[in-house]
C-alpha cells in the first residue's frame, strides 16, 4: 500500500539557525500523526513546508506517490498541490477573510477548484458546513459575527472544500476555550473517520494529540527525538524530553518541584 504522505529528511535553516533538521515520517491513508513540541521545536515550520508556504532547504514531500515541488508554477500545478495538502491555522480571528461571509469564502474555494454550477456549489457548501456542525446562519455571517469555535470550524470546512488528501492542523485548537475545543476535536475525529483524510496534527498538548492521533513525532529544537505509536509513547517514553513533556501536564498528585529539579539537572 502506498503511503498517503511521505516526508523525507526535511531541513530548513534561517540565517545561521537551524529550524528543522532531519524530519522524516510517513502517514498511511486515514492516518493521524501528531507533531509534538514546544516553541522553537520547528513544528510550525514543518507544517508550513508541508503546504508550500516555506521552501525546504532539502528533503522531499510526497503525497500519494507524487513528489510536491517546492516551487509551483501554473494554475494546474497550484490546484494539484492544493488538493494534496491543506492547512488550518491557530488563530481563528485572523485566518478568515474579514470581508467575506463564510458562505462566500467556501464558494470561492469551490469555484477555484472547478465547481462551475452554482446550485451544486450551494449544496456542497451546506454539506461542508454540516460536516463541521455549522448551518445556514453561519454561512450568511461575516467572521466577526461568529465565535472563535465557529470560526475555527469554518476554517476547517474551507480546507475540506478543496478535498485534500492530507489536512495539517497547526495548533488549530489551542486558542479555543476548553468547552469549545472539545467540539472541534470531535469534528476532527469525525472527518478523519468519514472522509479518510490523513491528519498531521501540530500541537504542544499531548492529551489533545492523544485524542486525535495514532502516533506522534516529538521534536526538540528542530530535531525529531522520538517517533512512536501514541499509546506506547505515553506509557513508556524513551526519551527524557518526552518524559518531561508528559510529566509537565498537570494531574492530581502533580509535583511540579520534581519536574523543575529534573530540568535543572538535565
Amino acid at each position: 500500500m502506498t503511503a498517503l504522505l511521505e516526508v523525507t529528511d526535511l531541513r530548513k535553516t534561517y540565517g545561521g539557525t537551524t529550524a528543522v533538521d532531519g524530519v522524516s515520517f510517513t502517514l498511511p491513508p486515514g492516518g493521524a500523526l501528531g507533531l509534538v513540541g514546544e516553541s522553537g521545536s520547528g513544528k510550525t515550520t514543518t507544517a508550513r513546508m508541508l503546504v508550500g508556504l516555506e521552501r525546504p532547504d532539502s528533503g522531499s514531500i510526497t503525497v500519494l506517490g507524487q513528489p510536491l515541488g517546492a516551487q509551483v508554477r501554473g494554475r494546474a500545478a497550484r490546484l494539484a498541490r492544493a488538493k494534496a495538502i491543506q492547512i488550518v491555522f491557530q488563530d481563528p480571528y485572523l485566518s478568515l477573510d474579514a470581508r467575506l461571509t463564510i458562505g462566500a469564502t467556501l464558494d470561492g474555494v469551490l469555484r477555484l477548484h472547478g465547481q462551475g454550477d452554482r446550485v451544486a456549489r450551494a449544496a456542497r457548501i451546506r454539506e461542508l458546513l454540516g460536516q463541521v456542525g455549522l448551518g445556514d446562519r453561519e454561512a450568511a455571517a461575516l467572521p466577526r459575527h461568529l465565535s472563535g469555535g465557529q470560526r475555527q470550524r469554518a476554517a476547517i470546512a474551507r480546507a475540506l472544500a478543496v478535498e485534500p488528501a492530507v489536512l495539517v492542523l497547526d495548533e488549530a485548537v489551542s486558542a479555543l476555550d476548553v468547552s469549545v475545543q472539545a467540539q472541534v476535536l470531535n469534528v476532527l475525529t469525525d472527518i478523519r473517520r468519514e472522509a479518510g483524510i490523513g491528519l498531521v496534527f501540530v500541537s504542544h498538548d499531548l492529551a489533545v494529540v492523544r485524542y486525535v492521533c495514532d502516533e506522534a513525532l516529538v521534536l526538540l529544537r528542530g530535531r525529531p527525538v522520538e517517533h512512536r505509536p501514541m499509546e506506547e509513547l505515553l506509557d513508556n517514553p524513551d526519551h527524557d524530553y518526552t518524559r518531561l513533556l508528559l510529566d509537565s501536564v498537570p494531574h492530581p498528585g502533580w509535583d511540579p518541584e520534581s519536574i523543575a529539579r529534573r530540568r535543572r539537572a538535565a
Binding site: E38, S39, H204, D205, L244, L245, D247, S248, V249, P250, P256, E257, I259, A260, R263
Partner: peptide, 10 residues
C-alpha cells in the same frame, strides 16, 4: 511552554 509551566508553578 508546558515544561516551563511546571517550573513556574513549583
Amino acid at each position: 511552554d508546558v515544561s516551563t509551566q511546571a517550573e513556574i508553578l513549583a
